[in-house]
Simulated scan of single mutants.
Amino acid sequence: MKNEIKQKAREYYLNEVINGDTCDDKDGWTDCFVSGAKALMQLPLCDRLTAAEKERVKGLHYHLTNVLAYCHPSADKIVEATIHDIESIFGKELFGEE
């Protein structure tokens, strides 16, 4: 399990399971697992990436942004669209200043 997911699971357990859900039988554990998985899937995609995955996506974004300055005008729209797609999938926050 990735560290980021472990941390989110701990937060979910402390906030939801201890304070609300009861997992005292098989059905209870199943309900806890399902509600935890739903909570994880509701997180923004960038919060579900490992640090290495985030760096790869940031590197791609950085590369495309720099390529845009040297692109032939006919390629500008394609590169701009790709940058926009990456930002809309992963969230512009991922590419902001840290």
Rank of each mutant, 00 (worst) to 15 (best):
K92F: 06
K6R: 14
E93S: 15
A37H: 05
N19P: 01
Y70N: 05
N19R: 09
C71L: 04
L45M: 01
I83Q: 04
E4A: 03
T65N: 04
H84P: 04
H61W: 08
I78C: 10
L60T: 07
V17L: 15
A37W: 09
G20W: 00
L94N: 04
K2Y: 03
D24G: 05
D85T: 14
G28Y: 00
G59P: 11
K6V: 03
G91P: 04
P44N: 04
D31K: 15
H84A: 11
L43P: 03
V67E: 10
E87D: 02
I5L: 04
K26E: 03
C46L: 00
D85C: 11
I89M: 09
E97T: 08
E93L: 02
V67F: 05
K8Y: 14
G36S: 07
M41F: 12
E11H: 01
V67L: 13
K8M: 03
F95K: 03
A51P: 06
D27A: 00
D24K: 15
N15S: 15
I89V: 15
Y13W: 14
C71G: 08
V57F: 02
D47N: 12
D21Y: 14
N15F: 07
I18H: 00
K92D: 06
F33N: 10
H63G: 01
K26T: 05
F33H: 14
F95G: 05
G36A: 15
F33W: 15
T50Q: 09
L60F: 07
K26I: 06
Y70R: 02
G59F: 03
M41C: 10
D24W: 11
E80V: 01
G91A: 09
G59W: 06
E16Q: 13
N19E: 06
L64Q: 03
E80Q: 08
I89T: 10
D21N: 09
L14Y: 12
K92T: 07
N66M: 03
R56F: 11
K77P: 02
D47T: 01
G20Q: 00
Q7K: 06
L49H: 08
I18Y: 01
T22N: 13
E98S: 13
V34A: 10
K77R: 11
Q7E: 06
Y13S: 09
G91W: 02
L94H: 08
P44F: 01
T82K: 07
E55F: 02
L14P: 03
L49D: 02
D47H: 08
E16G: 08
E55S: 10
P44H: 02
N19I: 01
E87A: 14
V57L: 04
I5M: 05
G28D: 00
I18V: 04
D47E: 15
E80W: 02
V67W: 04
V34F: 14
C32A: 15
H84N: 13
I89N: 02
Y13C: 06
Y13G: 06
Y12R: 07
H84Y: 14
E93P: 02
R56L: 11
A51D: 12
I18L: 13
Y70E: 03
K77H: 08
T82M: 09
L68F: 03
L45K: 00
R48Y: 12
E4Y: 05
K38E: 15
H63R: 12
A52Q: 09
T22G: 13
M41V: 10
A75F: 13
L43Q: 11
R10P: 00
D25G: 04
I86Y: 09
N3L: 14
K8W: 06
I89W: 11
G36T: 07
T30Y: 13
Y62P: 00
